[in-house]
Design a protein around this nucleic acid. Structure first.
Length: 302
DNA sequence: AACCCGGGGAT
DNA sequence: ATCCCAGGGTT
């Protein structure tokens, strides 16, 4: 083990969030559910919903058996509802194709719905402790800072970081290493205002000590021009309207439907006029994503 | 490569 | 007021 690896793991043993529900119980199902919920969603928001979700759907088999509409109802508060649809489809596949046992081969995992390169590595590292390096935004940022310096502008390509990260994982300790990197990224080596003084790697890090003001300046200097778009209040966006539609359908008693006309009337009363005019378009998109289903002129969660 | 998908917390 | 988040799928 290198000095960096030792210090990182020692820091994790002391300050890591070992009490996270998907770390307390080592179960591939817990790993998969948590990884889906955590895609682009912060830990604090996932924790309470994870608990109620696991209580209702404790195993792949239970999730495969449950109706998708109920899965989507339990997803309320997390956003990105297609993740719920894909997770349910994944459970179906695990039960029907793999006898209820989560596969471990990369190629098999990658074919599962909602599973990309990151989640393949996450499942292998967290559920099976194979020597994999899930490259999330935290790991990427830390590896870049420690080995190449501040990430603006990026001095290392994504592929280069990926290769390096894999070498950095101590043999047989992928679970703890990845957990440690993600906790360090969330608690110390944060994107905006890193706490280098509290970092176990500060004396070994190319970027430390990071001056937050300088970091901010560099980020703005090298930000993509697209970021300088005209800001629109979230309540005026199509995404907000989509959320209201799905939430309204969540309120329907299971098995019941609502007429499209009634739903449109309610939604138009809530959202901005320009978005309300696109009601049909929004419903069509939700239908295509298998989140909702139409039955004649009525609609419900799929 | 660019775009879409939620919504709440941190700064 | 803007950035950020345990990414993946589609175009």
């Amino acid at each position: 083990m290198t000095g960096i690896q030792r210090r990182l793991l020692a820091w994790y043993a002391k300050y890591g969030r070992a009490n996270l529900p998907w770390r307390v119980v080592r179960d591939p199902y817990y790993t998969v559910v948590s990884e889906f919920m955590l895609q682009q969603t912060q830990v604090d928001r996932v924790v309470p919903i994870f608990g109620t979700f696991i209580s209702r759907f404790p195993t792949f088999s239970a999730l495969a058996k449950g109706p998708q509409s109920e899965v989507v109802r339990y997803w309320k508060g997390l956003g990105y509802n297609t993740r719920a649809v894909r997770l349910k489809a994944l459970a179906d596949a695990v039960v029907t194709k793999f006898g209820g046992e989560m596969p471990t081969e990369e190629n098999l995992l990658l074919e599962l719905p909602g599973v990309g390169p990151y989640t393949v590595a996450a499942i292998r590292a967290f559920a099976f402790n194979y020597d994999a390096a899930p490259m999330d935004t935290n790991v990427r940022r830390i590896v870049h800072r420690v080995h190449f310096g501040i990430e603006y502008p990026a001095k290392a390509a994504s592929k280069e970081l990926d290769m390096l990260a894999r070498q950095l994982v101590p043999n047989g300790k992928a679970h703890d290493w990845s957990s440690a990197m993600m906790d360090l990224g969330a608690l110390v080596c944060t994107a905006r205002a890193p706490r280098c003084a509290a970092c176990p790697l500060q004396t070994l890090c190319v970027a430390a000590p990071i001056d937050a003001a300088r970091l901010e300046r560099l980020r703005e200097e090298f930000a993509k021009p697209a970021t300088a778009k005209e800001p629109v209040p979230f309540e005026l966006t199509a995404r907000f309207a989509r959320g209201r539609i799905v939430d309204r359908l969540r309120e329907l008693p299971p098995g019941e439907r609502i007429s499209l006309l009634d739903l449109e009337r309610e939604i138009v009363g809530i959202v901005a006029a320009e978005v309300g005019e696109r009601f049909d378009e929004l419903v069509a998109a939700l239908e295509k994503e298998k989140i909702v289903a139409r039955d004649g002129n009525e609609i419900s969660l799929a």
